[in-house]
Design a protein around this nucleic acid. Structure first.
Length: 113
DNA sequence: TCGCTGACATCCA
DNA sequence: CTGGATGCCAGCG
C-alpha cells in the first residue's frame, strides 16, 4: 500500500538523486516512484522546498512563471542553459540519463518491481 | 461519513 | 490556446 507519506518520501529521494547539472521531468519522477506526474507536482509544491526542485521540469523543460527567476539562477549555477526561445533544447541536452540517475538511488528504493 | 467542487509546479490531441 | 484525461488533497454541507 502506497500512502501519501510513502510517496512523499520516494519523491524526495528520487529528486535528491538527480545528478547536478541535469534535469528530469515530472513524468520521469512519477514513473520512478510509481504515481501520476501530477501527483509529483503536488508533492513538489508542498514538500519540495528543500529539494533540488529546479532540476525537475515539465516535459518541455519549463517551470511556472513564479519559479522561473529562482530556477534560472540555479540552472546558471549548474551550467544548465536557459533557452527561452527553445525550451525543448534544454530538456533534450540536459535531461538526466535515467540509468545514471536511478543508479544514485539507494538499493532499498522501491521502483515498483 | 459521504459527495461535490475547486486548485495543482502535468500531459496529450 | 482550448478541451479532456489522470490522481490526490482541502473545503463545504
Amino acid at each position: 500500500m502506497l500512502t501519501m507519506d510513502d510517496l512523499v518520501s520516494r519523491v524526495r529521494t528520487a529528486v535528491s538523486a538527480i545528478p547536478t547539472g541535469t534535469i528530469a521531468t515530472y513524468g520521469d519522477v512519477a514513473e520512478l516512484v510509481g504515481c501520476h506526474a501530477r501527483q509529483v507536482g503536488r508533492i513538489m509544491a508542498a514538500e519540495g522546498a528543500d529539494l533540488p526542485w529546479w532540476r525537475v521540469t515539465n516535459v518541455r523543460g519549463e517551470l511556472p512563471a513564479h519559479l522561473l527567476p529562482a530556477a534560472r539562477a540555479r540552472w546558471d549555477d549548474e551550467g544548465i542553459p536557459f533557452v527561452p526561445d527553445a525550451p525543448g533544447a534544454r530538456i533534450a541536452s540536459c535531461r538526466a540519463d535515467p540509468s545514471a540517475w536511478v543508479a544514485r538511488l539507494p538499493r532499498e528504493f522501491p521502483t515498483g518491481g
